[in-house]
Each structure stands twice: as structure tokens, then as C-alpha cells.
């Protein structure tokens, strides 16, 4: 198992190199001149533009720019944006916000999703099953933007249960945005769990568990749920990566200074160093959580062995 994990971690290096180059190339290919845009209404003098272009290696060809970037990266320097702000500072300021938001969202979708899925799955076609079916269909079909504004207006403003903006109330500020962010995945987790549980309830070993005279709780929690979790864990693992990078809408609506908005702003300003730094980090998280999922498989099902 240890060797497997080490090998998988080594494999992330080429993945990260490839991903960072692709992102670099994409930012490079964006139309417009980031330096000229810096000045806004007052155009910068040609001398300043030339100096900035030189400083940020913008006159070099793409590959040379990338290699210079990598050279700095190896020395632990992620570079600066065009205003001279360290990219590392931006990340260390923004990342905790996004991580908190993701943690809240994942907790919500895992706990509520699995509980709802189990309740629906053990009584197929029962009331709860239909309730989960209908409510998850609604949640999945409503765009997250609508969900965010409705949540903010109703739960935040009308009822006043949650803060509507910013992160000034600690973890509590993340509850409503987390719920909005989790909604779609929550519905998906519930459906996935429901199907998996319903299928496993008919398994021979569940019949055995009942024939052994085990209490119903044990039959469901011990002999059905654990075997049903593999597809759910796969989804949740991949979803952690997705949520971390894809929270742009939620972060904007609830005014959370996370990486989602940082990426959005940097792409608009063609801040290559910032985009590459953050996105590569997100790619790393994605790959890492997929590895965690693979390791979890072996924990959930002893038939799966890595060596």
C-alpha cells in the first residue's frame, strides 16, 4: 500500500507539469494586452510598458516564458502579479476561505445525502423514496445562481437566519454558501446512495444477515451501507476537487474572497502567474483526492488490494 501511494504521488509530477503548461499556454493565447489594460483610462507611457514587458518576460516566446516560470517555481518563487503582489500571498489569503467553504459543503452533502439515500433505499418506492426523488430532481434542475440568490434572499434577508455576505462570522458565515454549493451534489449523493442501497438490500449476504437474526439496524448499517458506499465515495472524492475550483458563482454571490473569485479576476486581467499558480494547485488537490478515494476503496472492500 505504501509503495502504491508513493508511486501515485510521483505520477502527479508529470500531471502537474502538463496541466501548468496547458494553463500557461491558454492565458498566453488570450486576446488583448494585460500591460496596456493596467493603466485603465490613463495610458501608460511606452517606456513603462516596455519596462514591464521586460520584467514579466512578456517579450519571450511561450516556451521560454514557461521555462523561466518553472525555474522560479523550483526556487519556491511563484512570481508576482503585475502590481507586484506575491502570488503566494494571494493563495495563502484566498485558499483558507475556499477550503472552509468546501469542507462545509462536503460535510453537508455527505451527511444529508447519505442519510436521505439510505432512508429512500431501504423502502424503495415508499414515501421517503419519492420525496427524495422529487426534491433532488428539483434541486438538480435549478441553476446554482438562482439557488444562491433565492437562498440569500429568503434564508438570509427574509428570515435573517444566516449572514448574507462576507466571512465576518467565522464558520457560521459559510453555512448558507456551503448549503447552496452542496445542493446539486447533495441531490446526486442521495440518488447514488439510494440506488446502491436498494440494490444491495437484495444481495444474498443481506438475506444471510437477516437469517442470522441480526437487528434491522445492524443489517442495514453494517451489512448494506458499507458495501453500498463505494460509488458514493468515488463521487464525493471527485467532488471535493470540483467544489474547490468551481465555487466562483457562490463566492461571488455571497462575497467570499476565495480562490474561485481570484481565478475569475486574474483571468480577466490576464495575470498569467496568478492563474497558473492557483489552477495548478487545484489540479494537485484534484489528483490528491482521487488518490485518497482509491486508498479508501481498499479500506471499504478488502477484496481490493494495491501493491
Amino acid at each position: 500500500m505504501g509503495r502504491y501511494v508513493a508511486r501515485r504521488l510521483l505520477l502527479t509530477i508529470p500531471v502537474l507539469l502538463g496541466a501548468s503548461f496547458l494553463i500557461f499556454a491558454m492565458v498566453y493565447a488570450l486576446p488583448g494586452d494585460p500591460i496596456r489594460a493596467l493603466g485603465g483610462d490613463r495610458p501608460l507611457s511606452p517606456a513603462v510598458v516596455a519596462q514591464l514587458r521586460e520584467e514579466f518576460n512578456l517579450n519571450d516566446p511561450l516556451v521560454v516564458q514557461y521555462v523561466k516560470y518553472l525555474g522560479d517555481l523550483i526556487q519556491g518563487d511563484l512570481g508576482t502579479d503585475f502590481r507586484g503582489r506575491e502570488v503566494l500571498d494571494t493563495i495563502s489569503q484566498r485558499l483558507p476561505v475556499t477550503i472552509k467553504l468546501t469542507v462545509v459543503a462536503i460535510l453537508i452533502e455527505t451527511v444529508i445525502g447519505i442519510v436521505a439515500g439510505v432512508l429512500a433505499g431501504i423502502r424503495r418506492n415508499g414515501f421517503l423514496d419519492n420525496l427524495v426523488l422529487v426534491s433532488s430532481t428539483i434541486v438538480v434542475s435549478v441553476p446554482i445562481l438562482v439557488l444562491a440568490f433565492v437562498g440569500q434572499y429568503v434564508l438570509g434577508l427574509q428570515f435573517g437566519w444566516f449572514p448574507v455576505s462576507g466571512i465576518n462570522e467565522g464558520w457560521y458565515s459559510y453555512l448558507l454558501p456551503g448549503l447552496v454549493l452542496a445542493a446539486g451534489s447533495l441531490a446526486y449523493v442521495a440518488r447514488l446512495t439510494r440506488t446502491s442501497v436498494a440494490e444491495n438490500m437484495r444481495a444474498d449476504y443481506v438475506r444471510t444477515a437477516r437469517a442470522k437474526g441480526l437487528p434491522r439496524r445492524t443489517v442495514i448499517l453494517r451489512h448494506t451501507l458499507r458495501n453500498s458506499l463505494i460509488p458514493v465515495v468515488t463521487f464525493i472524492g471527485a467532488d471535493i476537487g470540483t467544489l474547490m475550483g468551481g465555487a466562483i458563482v457562490t463566492e461571488s454571490v455571497f462575497n467570499l474572497p476565495g480562490v474561485g473569485r481570484a481565478i475569475f479576476d486574474s483571468v480577466r486581467a490576464q495575470e498569467g502567474a496568478v492563474v497558473v499558480g492557483i489552477v495548478t494547485l487545484l489540479v494537485f488537490f484534484f489528483v490528491f483526492f482521487n488518490l485518497v478515494v482509491d486508498v479508501l476503496y481498499a479500506v471499504l472492500d478488502p477484496r481490493i488490494r494495491y501493491d
Binding site: D204, Y205, D301
Partner: peptide
């Protein structure tokens, strides 16, 4: 039961 492989829980 007939099929002991499927009648035993694979994960315990």
C-alpha cells in the same frame, strides 16, 4: 444457503 460466496458479506 446455496452459494456461500455471495451469501457471505465480502467486506467482513
Amino acid at each position: 444457503f446455496q452459494d456461500a460466496l455471495s451469501s457471505l458479506n465480502p467486506v467482513y
